[in-house]
């Protein structure tokens, strides 16, 4: 089983929140996800994301899934 921080999917939640001037706590309240879980997603420690979570984030941040998640070929390209 691969380690949780080795996948090549980068989560750009931080940038999206900055662009929208929204805090993680605010987003957490809007989409009904705990701050702890949202923090796990933000730091790239999540192993999987539910479609319902993705849908809620895209709805609240007015973005596409591709804006939130990007594929980086190597680990160094992720950040």
């Amino acid at each position: 089983m691969p380690a949780e921080d080795t996948h090549a999917i980068a989560v750009r939640l931080d940038e999206l929140l900055q662009d929208r001037g929204m805090t993680l706590t605010e987003l957490s309240g809007r989409i009904g996800l705990t701050l702890a879980n949202l923090s796990i997603l933000k730091t790239g420690k999540a192993k999987a994301i539910r479609f319902s979570t993705l849908e809620a984030i895209c709805r609240e941040l007015d973005c596409q899934p591709g804006d939130l998640l990007t594929y980086a070929k190597s680990k160094g390209d992720q950040r």
């Binding site: 089983m1 879980n37 949202l38 997603l41 420690k45 999540a46 192993k47 999987a48 994301i49 539910r50």
Partner: peptide, 11 residues
């Protein structure tokens, strides 16, 4: 146990 571990990392 493996499924539970995966689920724990699912948001």
């Amino acid at each position: 146990a493996a499924m539970r571990e995966d689920l724990e990392g699912t948001v």
